[in-house]
Design a binder for these strands. Structure first.
Lengths: 209, 209
DNA sequence: TGTTGTGAATCTCTTCACAGCT
DNA sequence: AGCTGTGAAGAGATTCACAACA
């Protein structure tokens, strides 16, 4: 079983490898990738070991092969699609941010309760009424939910997603969601992050992490 | 020394305690707070122990006192101010999100390179030219930077902040920043988070974390 | 009885260190 | 000589389990 932390770093390595490949660099050593990622060489080697890819003691890793191996590991062969719930300031920013970024992972529908938004296309994404959730999500074969509704509506949004059979949720609302154990939630708690920065900025010389 | 993870949870506990206090609940047990926070009772007790606050074996913790203790621990007595670099979609969403949220922690200046934005006030925050960074930041006594510029400009933005003497940075750009060891960076890597969700949504029954 | 506070045990993640390879 | 792959050690975080207490 592969850990949450390793998955996160693999995602980062792949992104860094794309730049390396674009610069026409063929091979990369664990310590080079570690330098780019802010990790240690041993960490990089172990992460790569975990997905079963092997380098060469002389030339390090083949950048292109490694990126492909990570892709095979992280991506679903048919791709995966996400729905965004809550087309406010943050929701729209995310639609812009993720638009066309990864072919195997796209936001394919947005939902809101405000009728003025129904039918609009925002950064290439069609906006539906929340009432259509149960029909649009299976129809578009969506397997991931992104919650950007206000805090007081987040649990309801989550419950709706879970009821339809969504197993993965990215939650931007600053409240812990109650979910059954077969659903994975990743929280992005910006308030918490900012308060951490404030704390460690004070305690000065290199606080935690 | 208190850990990064503990600081994060304390921030969360405080937010949850506000709701509890608003509901006129006087006392709270570690297992109740744990339930709200999605943690264990032992975890909550240890975190609270770390900041030196004590409960009562009969009544648990005094909600109001505990919230105050966490505040004394997390907040700077004079408050702290942040600057946001990069007034794009995400930057504007953050200005809206954090506007007036916490009195002791506010975004007091925004910076961009686009002259059309200079002088505008966005969600209550004045927008300056990036060239004015070195004058506005000391003037407003800002100690925290928030980076929402495009990936290829993030390191430059970071370097500018560090040069002016900023010790804490919240980084939304999807690149690891190179910083001296006396600066604390908290990364919010939305791409990584979404890819994690995609992965664990597949491997189904409660992947990692 | 049911809670807190906490030493000790456990679990998880990271780093060390080196054999084996090219 | 300098790298990878990896067992083993180490560090860090969480949970257990129970004495002390109201």
């Amino acid at each position: 079983m592969i850990s949450n932390k390793t998955i996160g770093r693999l995602s980062l390595y792949r992104r860094l490898l794309k730049d390396v490949i674009n610069d026409n660099q063929r091979n990369i050593y664990s310590h080079e990738l570690a330098g780019l990622a802010g990790a240690t060489a041993a960490q990089v080697r172990r992460d790569i070991m975990n997905i079963g890819y092997s380098g060469n003691p002389n030339r390090g890793y083949d950048a292109r092969e490694l990126a492909t191996s990570i892709g095979n590991f992280l991506d679903h062969p048919d791709g995966q699609r996400a729905a965004l719930l809550g087309v406010g300031n943050l929701g729209r920013a995310l639609l812009a941010f993720f638009s066309g970024r990864r072919p195997k992972l796209s936001i394919d529908a947005a939902f809101d309760i405000d009728p003025k938004k129904f039918g609009r296309v925002i950064h290439g994404c069609h906006c539906y009424s929340t009432e259509d959730l149960a029909t649009v999500i299976p129809e578009k074969n969506i397997s991931i939910g992104i919650i950007t509704v206000p805090a007081n509506e987040a649990q309801k949004a989550c419950d709706n997603l879970v009821r339809i059979g969504i197993h993965g949720i990215l939650n931007f609302a600053p409240v812990p969601l109650k979910i059954p154990s077969n659903v994975y939630v990743e929280d992005i708690d910006m308030t918490m992050s900012l308060e951490k920065v404030a704390y460690f900025a004070r305690t000065a010389t290199s606080g935690g992490k």
